[in-house]
């Protein structure tokens, strides 16, 4: 019985990640459109886009190797696997034992690795350019992310995501070390913008070779391969947003498997994630994309914020 419940929970979480990701992308696009005084496409447009792409005949470059076709599946799988490790609507996620936050970070890195390879495989200058830029952005984001995670992990005395989320959820709004918490949150937010290719680090809506990073790597993809890649990018965004809302403000998440708690947990989660998506949409409308060589300054600032969070965690305890 217990195993059955766990299995059902895994499947529900899996389906939810897959289903919610395009919606979040839609929300951000809608917000941006409204801020630009456009009506914008409907919130469900990304679903239609994916469905269309899946049905199209894919074109593959004749210079590519098997890496090119394998990469979309690997990127998709690694992102989904990362999503299954973290609590979404229930603080005790069944697959929690399979990996902690570091495993999650490295699973996403696996996706990045194959994405970079895929960008190189087609042999055009655009792909190489995107890959090269992705490499530097991912490199610089990693240490900041690790430290900000650690600062939060210390508060809970654990690096297991479920434990972190569960413990802070039980505190119901009380934050143990507010300065550390806030700074770690700021650092994590910057890292999220960088890792998921949002403005001001990358612009997901452009196809201009001077500025694009993520899109440049996908340039040769089409049909179902492109659909998987786009979907994976959406899930990755959702994973990061979920991390932020659940680690830094988990209040409302279901702390037990009671049906009522699960329903409210899910509802609260969707509202929180959608709210954060709105924030990202606003930020994307407010700021211009940074030059590539200004990105280190932004991520350097994130690293310093995370470092200070750590220092303050140890020194400022009231």
């Amino acid at each position: 019985m217990y195993a059955m419940v766990q299995l059902v929970l895994i499947v529900v979480q899996f389906v939810m990640l897959l289903a919610l990701a395009p919606f979040i992308v839609g929300v951000i696009r809608k917000v941006k459109a409204r801020l630009q005084c456009r009506r914008g496409a409907g919130l469900l447009q990304p679903y239609a886009d994916l469905a269309k792409l899946f049905r199209k005949q894919p074109v593959r470059s004749s210079t590519t190797s098997w890496i090119f076709t394998a990469a979309p599946y690997i990127v998709f799988a690694s992102t989904v696997a990362a999503g299954l490790l973290m609590p979404v609507f229930l603080s005790h996620t069944p697959l929690n034992f399979a990996g902690n936050i570091i495993a999650l970070v490295y699973l996403l890195a696996l996706g990045t690795f194959f994405l970079i390879l895929a960008g190189l495989d087609a042999g055009s200058a655009f792909g190489g350019m995107g890959s090269s830029r992705e490499a530097i952005v991912a490199t610089l984001a990693e240490p900041a992310m690790m430290l900000s995670i650690l600062a939060i992990a210390l508060t809970a005395g654990s690096t297991n995501l479920s434990t972190i989320v569960h413990q802070s959820a039980l505190l119901e709004g009380v934050v143990l070390a507010p300065p550390a918490h806030l700074m770690a949150l700021a650092a994590m937010f910057i890292v999220t913008l960088a890792e998921t290719g949002r403005v001001p680090v990358d612009n997901p809506a452009t196809h201009l070779e001077l500025t694009m990073i993520h899109e440049a790597m996908l340039l040769e993809y089409s049909g179902r391969y492109l659909a998987l890649m786009e979907w994976a990018a959406g899930i990755k965004l959702l994973v990061f947003l979920t991390l932020i809302v659940n680690v830094f403000a988990p209040w409302g998440i279901a702390t037990s498997v009671a049906p009522l708690a699960l329903v409210t947990g899910t509802a609260v989660y969707v509202v929180k994630v959608a709210g954060l998506a709105v924030v990202i949409g606003v930020i994307e409308s407010m700021f211009a994309k940074l030059r590539l060589f200004r990105v280190p300054e932004l991520l350097g600032a994130a690293f310093i914020l995370a470092l200070l969070a750590l220092v303050f965690f140890y020194t400022l305890r009231g």
């Binding site: 280190p296 300054e297 350097g300 600032a301 690293f303 310093i304 470092l307 200070l308 220092v311």
Partner: peptide, 13 residues
Amino acid sequence: IPAGLLICGGLVV
């Protein structure tokens, strides 16, 4: 700037 930020982080420590 990034080096400056790092140095300032060190100064805080």
